[in-house]
Amino acid sequence: MVNILIVDDDINILQVVDIHLTESGYNVLQAKDGNEALRILNEQACDLAVVDVMMPFIDGYVLTREIRKKYNLPIILLTAKNQIEDKEEGFRSGTDDYLVKPFEMKELRFRIEALLRRYNKQTDDSIIRLGNITINKNNYEVQNGDRTIILPLKEFELLHFLTSNPMRVFSREHLIEQVWGLDYEGDERTVDVHIKRLRERFSKSTEDFQIKTVRGVGYMLEANPR
């Protein structure tokens, strides 16, 4: 699971960001100031940090520079300031991105996803292998042992997305955005229908993965590669 460190002295922002990112399948670690953030980073590997600029003890600029000295992870700075000088200082400190408060949670999530892709751009995810299952996005085929399966487009894209992010829980809304797009106007229940079809196709023919329902949240693919 992807670990996201959120650093902000505003407890309300910490809680709101935590709720939304957890619903999107991330594991969120909270820090109320820079010292606590550095302690967490020393104890646990993090994949990305979201850092507020205006904090006591160590401000976001200084914290960003400290993170850069020891860790190779993307950083997003949060600030109430929108002056070009403040953005310049942020980027000089080593931040990868900059988001001005107040902000939409969807925008923060999109920026997080973009940075995670950028830092992992050397990984070719067009072909995914789970035991005897091979999911090939180059030709949109699924190979189950010596059997080739051609899925309807959205079933394939849903399966590819879930297998690209095993052991992460995704809400129906998030799956709609990723597979059907932001302009989709249909019902979220279409996710349930497609999940049911994927289960019917693979539950009896492979033990390499299972798509599990996480009650009250959404779905998660559990990989069991041999």
Rank of each mutant, 00 (worst) to 15 (best):
211 I>R: 02
69 K>D: 02
72 N>I: 12
175 L>A: 00
58 I>Y: 01
36 E>A: 11
70 K>Y: 10
59 D>L: 03
179 V>P: 01
207 E>I: 08
13 I>N: 12
171 S>N: 07
150 I>N: 14
142 V>P: 03
89 E>W: 13
87 K>I: 01
226 R>Y: 12
157 E>H: 12
50 V>I: 15
90 G>E: 01
25 G>P: 05
112 I>F: 03
71 Y>Q: 09
63 L>S: 02
190 T>P: 00
104 E>F: 06
201 R>I: 15
46 C>M: 15
197 R>M: 13
111 R>Y: 02
55 M>N: 00
197 R>L: 14
101 K>G: 02
196 K>V: 06
39 R>G: 09
155 E>Y: 07
144 N>I: 07
43 E>L: 10
45 A>C: 07
192 D>S: 08
97 D>I: 10
224 N>A: 11
28 V>Q: 05
67 I>K: 06
30 Q>A: 08
173 E>C: 07
60 G>P: 14
126 S>V: 08
36 E>H: 08
73 L>G: 02
51 V>I: 07
48 L>V: 06
124 D>M: 00
206 T>E: 01
126 S>W: 10
154 K>V: 08
19 I>W: 13
118 R>T: 09
116 L>G: 02
152 P>Q: 07
93 S>N: 06
75 I>Y: 09
2 V>S: 09
51 V>M: 09
27 N>Q: 15
63 L>G: 00
70 K>M: 08
51 V>F: 09
86 D>C: 13
78 L>W: 07
136 N>R: 01
28 V>M: 08
82 N>I: 01
172 R>L: 06
96 D>I: 09
182 L>T: 10
165 N>V: 05
133 I>W: 04
85 E>R: 12
86 D>G: 14
50 V>Q: 06
65 R>H: 14
7 V>G: 02
221 L>C: 11
160 H>D: 11
17 V>P: 06
129 R>N: 13
107 E>W: 02
131 G>F: 01
200 E>Y: 11
224 N>F: 11
151 L>M: 03
2 V>I: 13
43 E>S: 11
95 T>D: 03
34 G>I: 03
134 T>G: 05
